[in-house]
């Protein structure tokens, strides 16, 4: 009962909130960068997997299995600590003292982008396959090539269909930016940890952090729901 009487949310809110704002900006940077990368990769992977090239399809399936078979946290750590070493190792064949370094946030964006890109590619692929074959045929009959029909008729419809699912992944990614704390990105979790260990306001700090994430994601879920409604109008 002693702990309860010592709770000091007032101080924690006052001191931690400005920190969280700073962390939020970084988390949003990571999300915007990571998600853009993920969307681009997802469409490219999906199109690649639907192509006629067996080699390309094989390579993509191997990459997908690796990404889906390992935890995101491990991928982030690998991207930040191991990939620069590997690049340095190769580069040192040409430039002896070369040391490659990856900015933590940039490594985080790459890690998140690749991971989410792989998952989203399944969504895009399913969406492309769900578009009626008649759409492609109508385009072909008008003189489009296969590629033109795919990119200007099928993919716009497929991405439109995929947008609500994309929205849910976007919200997941915002929350997953907390994993970037492990690769020294100074986002919300890392700042909260630092504050909590300095002040011993453990309960207060992490509760505030959790609430902050809730405040962030609840309205976004609503936006996604609205978007879903609007987009289904002319589908």
């Amino acid at each position: 009962m002693d702990i309860l009487s010592h709770l000091d949310f007032a101080t924690a809110i006052k001191e931690l909130t400005p920190e969280l704002w700073q962390g939020l900006l970084i988390a949003l940077e990571a999300t915007v960068g990571g998600f853009l990368l993920a969307v681009i990769l997802s469409v490219l992977i999906a199109v690649g997997r639907l192509s006629d090239s067996k080699v390309l399809k094989g390579i993509l399936v191997v990459i997908l299995e690796i990404v889906r078979g390992t935890p995101l946290l491990v991928q982030l750590v690998y991207m930040f600590y191991v990939v620069p070493l590997l690049i340095s190792l190769v580069a040192q064949f040409f430039m002896p003292d070369y040391q490659f370094q990856l900015n933590p946030l940039f490594a985080g964006i790459l890690g998140l982008g690749i991971n989410y890109g792989c998952y989203l590619s399944e969504v895009v692929r399913a969406a492309i396959l769900s578009i009626d074959k008649g759409q492609t045929e109508a385009a072909l009959a008008l003189g489009y090539t296969q590629r033109q029909a795919l990119w200007s008729i099928v993919i716009p419809q497929a991405t439109r269909q995929a947008i609500p699912v994309f929205g849910n992944y976007l919200i997941m990614m915002i929350k997953d930016t907390s994993l970037l704390a492990f690769i020294t990105v100074n986002e919300l979790l890392l700042r909260t940890q630092a504050y909590a260990s300095q002040t011993f306001l453990t309960i207060e700090s992490y509760t505030i952090l959790a609430v902050a994430y809730l405040i962030l994601s609840l309205p976004l879920s609503q936006v996604v729901r609205l978007l879903e409604k609007r987009l289904s109008k002319h589908a």
Partner: peptide
């Protein structure tokens, strides 16, 4: 093939209009 197709219009049973 695509170029030759531009000389031929086609109308389908299921319309196949572009919904967006």
């Amino acid at each position: 093939v695509a170029k030759l197709r531009t000389e031929i219009g086609m109308v389908f049973q299921s319309f196949n209009l572009f919904p967006m």
